[in-house]
Design a protein around this nucleic acid. Structure first.
Lengths: 147, 147
DNA sequence: GCGAAAGCCTATCATTTTGCTATGGATTTC
DNA sequence: GAAATCCATAGCAAAATGATAGGCTTTCGC
């Protein structure tokens, strides 16, 4: 399953914002772009989608940037994926529409509907907090440096 | 999850061949195109992929057409999907390569690798026979007419 | 044998999607 | 008021998608 850079960058940016705004400060698109090695202008467009989805708040002006608009524990990956790409997850009711008795309907009901159902269920059970937790685990819990 | 027409038509065509070649006769691309309402020339290209994947045999000449090259019970959907689209399922070893300790690796290990693993496992557990069974179930088992 | 019927192969092409780049306006802080 | 930042939109090249078209090759039926 190939995922677009838009989805990839969007998820990484959201996690970056979550990780670096914990002390109350904002995270600018320039910071994220440098840390994650993404074109800043492209990133800004993607983050607009995250803002419209209600996951981050943008603060204009000098010293502006982004913060999460809800705790990471309540940001479900299903929502984020839908905001970044409206084809990656199928709607729940979409599965019920294939009631014909042709071959295509059979393929849908025994293959695609089941796969889509699992993907929806799995991404609804995961939150941004899980991603952050995985990251902390991989860095041994010691990625914060205090002077 | 949006699926390309190539994958959709390919699966339908394969099931059509399986269903209509049971009495030993061949199934022509023209027949399939008419029954499934697909452009015949486009369909031919797709079926070439099915033949190269080893799922069907093509018989040239008048009275030619296609038949399965193995029993439907041994045609796994994972193989078929890989033959029709090499991005739809990820390789098994691909998952093991993401061992970095950056955010992207974390997203991969807790989201994409798990989703891909499930998709692979699920499609490896399903065969063309399951699709055909679903179709027969939907038509009430009475789609064959004897004169 | 010959012709029709079928598979097989390749080229072409329009449209859409993807992945950016660029420009500039709006707003806030210092 | 100037710098920094978000916000919005336009443009654009490359790739993928979804076909269409032409013609060669092989085989069956007569």
């Amino acid at each position: 399953m190939k995922v677009s850079t838009r989805v990839e960058y969007g998820l990484v940016a959201l996690a970056d914002i979550a990780l670096n705004s914990e002390n109350g400060c904002t995270v600018s698109s320039a910071e994220i772009a440098e840390r994650q090695n993404i074109s800043q202008k492209y990133l800004e467009q993607i983050i607009i989608g995250l803002r419209q989805g209600g996951f981050v708040k943008g603060m204009k002006g000098s010293r502006g940037g982004y913060v999460l608009s809800r705790p990471a524990e309540r940001i479900y990956l299903s929502e984020v994926l839908n905001a970044l790409d409206n084809n990656i997850l199928a709607d729940a009711h979409e599965a019920e529409e294939t009631l014909g008795n042709d071959i295509l309907s059979s393929v849908n009901s025994c293959l695609w509907n089941k796969l889509n159902g699992y993907m929806r269920q799995f991404t609804e059970s995961m939150t941004l907090a899980d991603v952050i937790g995985e990251y902390r685990k991989s860095t041994g819990g010691g990625d914060m440096y205090y002077i």
